[in-house]
């Protein structure tokens, strides 16, 4: 945990510095404005566009350094901890659950929300949750059906269906 604390502080510090650099970016349509020209006050106009994000990012950078100092002095609980940041269970969970979520998102791009939802729920319930096939199928088919009627039919929020769109055309004719 101690190593993770300082590594995170360094990453967040670099990220803060990047945000400062990015906040000072001039608009591409005005070549006369130099980088960081927009982080101050403009006479009669008040703060320029980059003023607020730049100085907030600067405070973030100071906080990252403060976190690093606390790590050095061992004053924060994670900097004193001997525990592992992510043990074998945590890494496996991140891979299976987090990876599953990313997989779900990729599926949505191609086969749409409803089919993707079915596959994700089947994967989670059957393989990770070890539920029976009957229960798995009941939930993984019931949830998309409920969502279709709630979002597409009742709320008129049409969720993307990807290549499965033609399968929904008869339903559109009936319900929409």
């Amino acid at each position: 945990m101690r190593r993770a604390e300082i590594v995170t502080a360094i990453i967040l510090g670099i990220f803060s510095a990047y945000l400062m650099w990015k906040s000072g970016e001039a608009p591409s349509w005005d070549p006369s404005v130099a980088r960081f020209d927009n982080i101050g006050m403009i006479d009669g106009e008040g703060p320029a566009s980059g003023w607020w994000p730049f100085w907030l990012s600067a405070i973030m950078l100071v906080c990252s350094i403060w976190i690093a100092v606390n790590w050095w002095r061992k004053t924060s609980p994670p900097s004193r901890s001997d525990e592992v940041f992510l043990d074998a269970y945590g890494r496996r969970m991140l891979l299976l659950v987090g990876g599953g979520l990313i997989g779900f998102m990729v599926l949505i791009q191609f086969i749409g929300f409803y089919a993707g939802m079915f596959i994700f729920l089947f994967y989670y319930l059957f393989f990770l949750g070890r539920h029976s096939v009957f229960r798995t199928l009941a939930i993984s088919t019931g949830t998309p059906i409920f969502c279709f009627f709630f979002f597409d039919v009742a709320m008129r929020i049409v969720l993307p269906k990807g290549v499965t769109e033609p399968l929904f055309l008869p339903l559109y004719k009936i319900f929409l």
Binding site: L101, F104, M117, L121, Y124, L125, G129, R130, T143
Partner: peptide
């Protein structure tokens, strides 16, 4: 193990 995937969805 049922609630968690439903929350994700």
């Amino acid at each position: 193990t049922i609630l968690a995937p439903l929350i994700f969805v």
